[in-house]
């Protein structure tokens, strides 16, 4: 972890340490800032909040929301809640898996894409729904999955270019 991130984690931990019932909140804040909960961050939280590291590990691994490893740059979340399931989310999962040649729950080798199934995201009216880095696609049909991947590949390419120039 870089110094700047370390400070971020420490500030979050210090803030929540003052309030009871806030270990999960501190973890949320850290994941919100870093995208996942790295080991070093867990260590800092343990220190600042006076919680045994073992407890933090127990909590982080219990709650599926928390990630211990860095996710891909583009996270594709396919809703597999009941409404979306009935409206064909299994077909979407298969289509993304095929297009990216990875299994659901894993990332592409270059770390660009991560594929995951999630439970109801609250817009069942748009079933089946897919969320990519916060952008929602509704009433998605399997052939559209490849288009979505292309769209994001292009976006990432532009972003890289911006960084270089």
């Amino acid at each position: 972890m870089e110094k700047e991130q370390e400070d971020q984690v420490r500030t979050a931990a210090k803030k929540w340490a003052k309030q009871r019932g806030s270990l999960v909140m501190a973890l949320h804040e850290v994941q919100g800032a870093l995208g996942f909960v790295p080991w070093d961050a867990a260590r800092i939280i343990a220190e600042e909040m006076d919680v045994p590291l073992a407890r933090i590990y127990e909590v982080v691994s219990f709650y599926s929301y928390f990630k211990l490893e860095k996710p891909g740059d583009v996270v594709i979340s396919i809703c597999d809640g009941t409404a979306c399931h009935i409206k064909g989310s299994p077909g979407l999962i298969a289509a993304f898996e095929k297009d990216l040649s990875i299994a659901c729950g894993t990332s592409t080798e270059d770390g660009m894409f991560h594929l995951q199934a999630v439970r109801c995201i609250g817009c069942c009216g748009l079933a089946p729904a897919v969320v990519v880095n916060g952008k929602t696609y509704g009433k998605v049909k399997p052939p559209e999955c490849a288009t979505i991947v292309k769209e994001w590949k292009a976006k990432m390419k532009d972003k890289m270019k911006d960084k270089v120039s």
Binding site: V24, M25, R55, V59, F62, Y63, Y65
Partner: peptide
């Protein structure tokens, strides 16, 4: 006070919910 869940269905059960706010599994 507001506290967030973290993706565990069982935390909707009342005793599990309280354990979760207490900072446990």
């Amino acid at each position: 006070e507001v506290r967030y869940g973290a993706g565990a269905f069982v935390c909707g059960e009342e005793t599990a919910l309280m354990a979760s706010i207490e900072g446990k599994r």
